[in-house]
Simulated scan of single mutants.
Amino acid sequence: MTRANPDDTIQASAAYAALRYGGAPPGAAQAQLALPTPLASRLETMFSRRSGGGPDPMRPRFARHASHVAAVVAAGGYPALKP
């Protein structure tokens, strides 16, 4: 039986978060880091919980407010937002 080195898990978590914040979808981050599916699922769960909230961690919290979203998009802000 082999056990994961805690340092490897921490590094994988940091690399996974960096890829996801950089815009990589979950599957691409998993493939690029060659992560086993159970670990990738756990990292995605952790990433979703600590990010901006809601179902899409890449979407800022203020995205619920239409006037603010329109102002940010008009200023060239977040590409994930759609007016």
Score class of each variant (00 low, 15 high):
S13I: 02
L43P: 00
V69H: 05
I10E: 12
Y16K: 00
S41K: 12
L33E: 05
T9D: 09
R49D: 12
R20A: 03
A18E: 09
A66Y: 07
D7N: 13
F62H: 06
V73Q: 06
R50S: 15
A28G: 06
G23K: 08
E44I: 00
R61Q: 06
R42P: 00
V69Y: 08
F47L: 12
L19C: 02
L19Y: 03
A66E: 10
P79E: 10
T37S: 14
S67E: 15
G77I: 14
D8E: 07
N5M: 08
S13W: 01
A71D: 14
A14I: 14
G27C: 02
P36A: 15
L43M: 00
M46H: 10
P6R: 06
L39V: 13
P79M: 09
G53T: 01
A31R: 07
R61V: 07
G53F: 02
A4I: 04
M46P: 03
R64M: 04
A71R: 15
Q32V: 11
A31N: 04
H65D: 13
T2R: 15
P36M: 10
S51R: 14
P25L: 07
G22D: 03
G27T: 07
A31I: 01
G53K: 01
G53H: 02
P57E: 01
G53L: 05
Y78E: 15
P6E: 01
